[in-house]
């Protein structure tokens, strides 16, 4: 039983970490702000879930689990809102999205 729990939390932690690294690569490699937001925010939710779930399996049913659940809920609640606010602000301030090599100038023109 303990072995199964260990293996499961291993798998969850690795999955979470891999998602995190994927998102990180995305923020480095993607060409513009909006695509980078995509990379980091989409992976973020599942990354947090996997890692926290992996930890909960280890902690068992204790106060620690309750706190972990709070952290997860908090992250799930705030991080999409933060992303939303971020993209909205960037868009309102006129940060142009990257469309193709010569289309970004057109996009800016079209907007204003």
């Amino acid at each position: 039983m303990a072995l199964i729990v260990d293996a499961l939390s291993w798998a969850l932690l690795i999955a979470g970490v891999v998602l995190g690294i994927t998102g990180a690569i995305g923020t480095i490699r993607f060409p513009d702000f909006y695509t980078r937001v995509h990379a980091s925010s989409v992976t973020d939710t599942l990354c947090a879930l996997c890692i926290i779930a992996g930890l909960i399996l280890q902690a068992g049913f204790t106060l620690v689990t309750v706190k972990l659940v709070f952290i997860l809920l908090f992250l799930w609640y705030t991080s999409p809102v933060a992303t939303h606010a971020l993209v909205r602000a960037a868009h309102h301030m006129g940060l142009p999205p990257y469309l193709s090599n010569n289309a970004s100038a057109d996009a800016q023109k079209g907007k204003s």
């Binding site: 998102g23 702000f33 980078r36 952290i71 971020l86 602000a89």
Partner: peptide
């Protein structure tokens, strides 16, 4: 852009939260 920085700092923050959780264990 300053938004890229905010994005990065936000991501840094959430990963630190996870790091602190794992580090406790």
């Amino acid at each position: 852009s300053v938004y890229d920085r905010i994005l990065a700092v936000n991501m840094f923050g959430t990963k630190t939260v996870l790091f602190l959780a794992v580090f406790g264990f």
